[in-house]
Design a protein around this nucleic acid. Structure first.
Lengths: 191, 191
DNA sequence: GTAGGAGTTGAACAAGCGTTCAAGACCCTG
DNA sequence: CAGGGTCTTGAACGCTTGTTCAACTCCTAC
């Protein structure tokens, strides 16, 4: 065994797949291109990922993990700051890059075309929604669980819109105003 | 010449491409599948559309036309009703179908992967934004042009979010609340 | 040192792809 | 009916794709 190198090669292959998907869409992700981009031989891609479908699934799970981290609270902060940070992080420089957004878009499109991918994506969406609802509940203890989920759903709509619209090159100012809108929804007084 | 039938076949081919794109993504759109779906021979697809790329471009333009109609005012209505209708139409039954949304998503993904497609898409986006800004200006004559464009941009963020989130199966109620949010933005008092 | 497993390679295969094209079908005009 | 354009067909081509596999290298355990 050589765990260091094994992980290195395998994750380089996954990273190559993610890069290609982000840059050229699913048509640009073929086993040969992935191997070239990762600097390995063609056969090695099929060695670590049984299928092309397996490789794409792995990529999907990777992105979904990243998304979930957005609503993972920092326990050192008070609840309302945890929520505020989570809402602002979506427009942070590490997420609002063309590469990352493009990747998300292609994975959504993929999930729409393939039922297997759709299940993974739907589960991740549900976890994200639940995570956000929990953050809202912690910051607003007077809200009911149902009200928290409603607000989380409304916020997700705006966030998805920010992501998508950022790709189309809408100005930063509009993104900032949308962030403020999500905070408004999150911290509004109970109705 | 047989213009009726020619148009019939040609548009059936385009429709077949749109259907396949919506259902299976770009990987599902190949000349043979398009021909089969349209009920014509393989060669006819290349007869009407020189290239696969030409076919996809035609599909892109078709969708962009539909989008533009969303902000085309009905001259019989007063300005504020024109705006309100435009904002509500995006959640109407003819637009909020899985088929249409899925198609949009795939076309966005396509535009992200190919520069030529991106140009068409960006131009259509700009026209839509401008159309929406004009509607807002007509309904709120006291607003400056810049303020109208800002509001249009903010509304587009929420609308894009609604479209995308509807695909992930978020509940109708959240969509309705988001519609209300776009109306709030559109009709807010001047700041 | 050597047997054996894990990692790695690229040639080979079958299937699918976009595109071309010679041939035919169809329909109007003279 | 003969001519000629437009429309329509499907076989054929060369290329790319996903997948398989025999061979090879490398490292470790005994």
């Amino acid at each position: 065994m050589n765990p260091g190198k094994q992980l290195d090669r395998q994750s380089r292959i996954l990273q190559a797949a993610l890069d290609l998907l982000s840059r050229h869409g699913i048509s640009g992700v073929n086993m040969r291109a992935v191997a070239r981009e990762a600097g390995v031989a063609l056969g090695l891609v099929n060695y670590y990922y049984e299928d092309k479908s397996t490789l794409i699934r792995a990529a999907l799970r990777r992105i979904d993990e990243d998304d979930l981290m957005l609503v993972t609270p920092d326990p050192a902060l008070p609840p309302d700051e945890q929520l505020r940070q989570a809402l602002r992080r979506v427009a942070g420089p590490e997420y609002l890059t063309t590469q990352y957004l493009s990747l998300r878009l292609h994975l959504w499109a993929l999930a729409q075309a393939d039922e297997g991918f759709a299940l993974i994506n739907a589960a991740a969406f549900e976890r994200y929604l639940q995570g956000l609802a929990t953050l809202i509940g912690n910051a607003n203890p007077e809200l009911s669980g149902e009200e928290c989920r409603q607000r989380a759903a409304d916020i997700v709509v705006v966030q998805n819109g920010m992501w998508l619209t950022a790709l189309l090159g809408v100005d930063r100012a509009s993104i900032q105003r949308s962030i403020a809108r999500t905070e408004q929804i999150a911290f509004a007084a109970a109705s």
